[in-house]
């Protein structure tokens, strides 16, 4: 498995998709430029933007993670020459995942460093009334990493049975969108507009809410930008959620991939 991990890690940095995505790190240059347009919110906007750019880059990595590894290996029949070694399929699959997760981690760390620099520049330009809580910014980065690991696990799940490029690509995007919307819709239906909907409808919504991933639980952007307190309860809650959801998705993916005929 270690060999597969290092293979994945090295190859991604050599790969074309990898290079394109990595070059997006340059987007950080626009953070101070764009923030300076704001009159009073330089610091807040620079934090929000840094987090958003990081999310965007990780999103691309998460979508292409499975496509650049497992899906391509199957599609281009690389699995014939990879799995004919004494290598367990699950080791191969996890190796591919972990290798890409490492790539993501490296990108995340470099994004964080760049974010710190851009936020510092912006904060120096205009003194905000809010304190700058680096801890919160770091937490936001860590949890966005978890979010995109989970999304990438979905990508691997789709790649475990996909025969066409469109399945892992669009299904992962769809999961991303629904996963982000689920909490908002749930709140709307159960709190803002509770009386307008029938009980049956609510039960269905609740079931869907439980099944869909909840990416809002990993989003601490406002806490970072507006210096809100993050309770440890919330962190633990989101972390446990990640562990459980991730294990479920990955084990299903492994079960499917293990049964698959690699024709």
């Amino acid at each position: 498995m270690l060999t597969i991990i290092s293979l994945t890690f090295k190859n991604t940095f050599k790969d074309r998709i990898g290079i394109i995505i990595l070059s997006m790190v340059l987007l950080y240059i626009i953070v101070p430029v764009f923030s300076s347009f704001s009159m009073r919110q330089l610091q807040e906007i620079s934090i929000t933007m840094s987090i958003t750019i990081n999310s965007f880059i990780l999103l691309l990595l998460a979508i292409f993670g499975s496509i650049a590894t497992v899906f391509r290996d199957v599609e281009r029949k690389f699995v014939y020459t990879l799995l004919s070694h004494p290598l367990k399929r699950s080791d191969y699959f996890m190796g591919r995942f972990i290798g890409f997760a490492f790539v993501m981690l490296v990108v995340l760390i470099s994004n964080f460093v760049l974010s710190v620099i851009s936020i510092k520049i912006c904060a120096a330009m205009y003194k905000s009334r809010l304190p700058l809580l680096w801890g919160n910014v770091a937490i936001t980065f860590v949890f966005s990493y978890l979010q995109y690991l989970l999304l990438m696990a979905f990508g691997f799940l789709f790649a475990s049975f996909a025969t066409s490029f469109f399945i892992p690509f669009f299904a992962t995007i769809a999961i991303f969108i629904t996963g982000n919307a689920s909490q908002g819709i749930y709140d709307y239906i159960f709190h803002s507009a509770s009386k307008e909907y029938s009980e049956l409808f609510k039960v269905i919504i609740k079931a869907i809410y439980y099944i869909l991933p909840n990416f809002s639980s990993f989003d601490f952007t406002v806490h970072a930008a507006y210096a809100l307190k993050i309770s440890s309860n919330q962190l633990i809650n989101s972390f446990v959620y990640f562990i459980l959801y991730f294990t479920i998705v990955m084990s299903v993916a492994l079960i499917i991939f293990n049964r698959r005929d690699l024709t």
């Binding site: 807040e44 906007i45 709140d187 639980s217 406002v222 507006y226 809100l228 459980l244």
Partner: peptide
Amino acid sequence: VSLLLMIAFMPHFSEVMQQRASLVKLGF
């Protein structure tokens, strides 16, 4: 096992998420 744990965990999870919902921020 993880599915069972998940089912057991979800009510707690959505409860904690509710507390967070009160912190809705509009942002920029």
